[in-house]
Structures are given as C-alpha cells and as structure tokens.
Amino acid sequence: MIKREIELLVLSDIHLGTYGCHAKELLQYLKSIQPKSIVLNGDIIDVWQFSKRYWPSEHMMVIKHLIGLIAKGTPIYYIPGNHDEMMRKFKGTQLGSLRIVNKLSLNLHGERTWMFHGDAFDVVMQHSKWLAKLGAVGYDTLILINRFMNFFSEKMGRGKLSLSKRIKNSVKSAVAFINKFESTVCEIAAENNYQYVICGHIHEPALKHVVTDKGTVCYLNSGDWIENLTALEYNDAQWKIYRYYEDEVAQSVELEHRSKNKESNKALFNSLLAEMKITV
C-alpha cells in the first residue's frame, strides 16, 4: 500500500482509555499516511477516566504505532491537555524524536503558527475542575449510549446520530462558549503577531479566518476522535481538515483481526517498552 505523505499532522482529543474513543479508525488512518512530523495537541490518553479494566488492544496499538514512528525518527511534539495534564510535569523532556512542550510556535513558510491545547481559556477548567471532570464522565456515558443507539439505527437503515452534537448545537450557552473561545484565542494570537492559531479541547473541528482589532487570524481546531474523527493536515503551505468518514482509503485499511492477533495487551506493552529503549 502506498501511503499518503503529509508534511505536518495535528491530532488532539483522542481520549484513549474511554469507551467513546475510535482507536480502530484512528489506527486505520495512521497506517494509511506517512507524516513527516506530528503534533499531539492534548487529551491523547484520558487519565481522568483511565481504568485497567478497559484498555482494548486497539488503544495499545495506537500507542505502539506512535512509538514506532518515534523509533524511526519522526519528530513528534506532545502538548498535554487537561485530561492528560500529568504530562505537563515533564515539560522540556525529549526522548529521541519526541518532545513534550506546553505550547508550540512554528514558522511555516513564513507564517507564524501558535499551537496549544486550549483548556487554559476554559473558565470551568480554571475554577471548577471537579465540575469539568463530572462533565467528562457524563459526556463519555452519553457517547456510550449514542453508540448503542447508532447500532440499532444503522440496522434499521437510518444512519448515525450524534446526541452530544445535537445538545451542543441546541443549547445557546454551549454555542456562545465556542464562539467566545474562538474569538479569545484569536485576539491573543493577533496581539502576539501570529497569523495562525491551532487548538483542540472543544471537540469542534474548524478552519476559519477571524477578524480582530489587531488583524486577521486563521483559527484552526483539530476536532476529536470521539465524534468527528478529524485531524489537521498541512501540505504545500495549505491547511485542511481531515475527516475519516470521507476517506475511503483509510476505511479500507485492514487491521489484524482480534482472533488472529496473538499479542495480548501485556505482549504489546512489552513490545512498546522494547521500542522505547531504542529512542532513549
């Protein structure tokens, strides 16, 4: 299979370790591309809801695939989010081609680009973390219910539904929060002479130009791998939103079937450790 080359890939809000994570689809996507560099923009592993009782092999295989890219020398920047905030303790750490940073500033073809997760601009996160964690549990439960509904909906030929999207789009405060989030980060980016600002956190993929008092900024959001299954791809000085459900090539990638896969999670973990030794 000829892999599609990508100059820079941005992924965020994968939430490995939760029922809502589409690890299988993400793995199909990763196996269909050849990125020259990657930015993991937060909430990659959901430490808030992590449980040893739920860690499917596909989730471990995503980690293993990323570690394999590090072993090959692919530059990967890890920007922790609020769900994997424990990684912020390791800011400045470098293991092989992996670097852990709290934010990232890049010059891409003469355009200044600012990347960060975005939870710093979330008032709930700043003042009521317990409420945010409670909301995360409720969100994951809603996604799980949504999966059951979609199973029967597709069987009946009605297609997929998104409960959380409908709720977000129908609640004025949720829409207002997203708009405020976007305008705030763009204003700060413009004040610091950035032409592009890239976030995650709000699970809302976007690519738009926002006019501020200090100038126009291109705002991008990589979305998530819970509902939208999206990423950001940069090629030939152009950004685009990648959507898994529009990618027939990635959807056709065959993964090793569980029944044929003799590697248990423990074996995959040992393999992961072996590859990490190469990068240190």
Rank of each mutant, 00 (worst) to 15 (best):
K266Q: 12
P75G: 06
D213L: 05
Y234D: 03
C186P: 09
P56Q: 04
T212Y: 06
P35Y: 08
F152T: 11
V123F: 14
N169G: 15
L11N: 08
L66A: 02
C218E: 12
E191D: 10
D122G: 08
G157V: 10
E246M: 05
C218Y: 02
N228W: 08
H201E: 09
L11P: 11
L229V: 02
W225K: 04
A231D: 09
F121L: 13
P35F: 07
L268P: 06
E25D: 15
K89N: 06
S12E: 08
M60D: 04
F151S: 08
Y245S: 07
N192E: 10
A71Q: 14
W225R: 03
L255F: 10
S162E: 07
S173L: 05
K240S: 13
H22F: 14
L144W: 15
V185C: 09
R99W: 01
I33G: 07
I76R: 08
I14E: 01
H127K: 14
N228I: 01
I67Y: 10
R147D: 15
A250S: 15
I33Y: 11
P205C: 04
E187W: 00
L11Q: 10
I67D: 05
L255M: 06
K214C: 00
K64M: 03
N235K: 08
T184N: 12
L40A: 01
H257Q: 08
M156T: 03
L40K: 02
I278D: 01
L26K: 07
K64S: 12
K36T: 08
I178P: 00
R243N: 12
Y29S: 08
E227G: 00
S222G: 08
A176E: 14
E85Y: 03
Y139A: 04
E182F: 05
C218L: 12
N261Q: 12
K129S: 01
G138C: 00
E204R: 13
G73R: 07
A274N: 12
K129P: 10
N270M: 09
L134M: 11
L161T: 14
G110M: 10
H257R: 12
Q34D: 13
N193E: 12
A136G: 06
I198R: 03
G81Y: 04
K64C: 01
L144C: 07
G17R: 07
L95A: 05
I100K: 00
W239V: 07
Y54K: 05
K52C: 01
H59N: 13
H127L: 13
G138V: 00
I45D: 01
T184A: 07
D236H: 13
V47P: 00
N235E: 09
I33E: 06
N169S: 09
K91Y: 10
I143Q: 01
A71R: 15
R112I: 03
K160G: 02
E275F: 03
D247M: 05
I198Y: 08
N270P: 00
G81W: 04
S51N: 13
N107P: 02
F151P: 00
I14D: 02
M86I: 10
L142E: 06
A120Q: 14
M86E: 06
S252L: 03
L161Y: 15
V124P: 09
L30N: 11
I70A: 15
F269N: 01
S153I: 01
A206M: 13
I100C: 00
S173D: 07
S173N: 04
I178Q: 10
I70P: 03
S264F: 11
K72C: 04
K262T: 14
G135I: 00
W114S: 02
I67G: 02
I76P: 14
T216D: 04
L104I: 09
M86N: 02
F177L: 02
M115N: 00
N193Y: 13
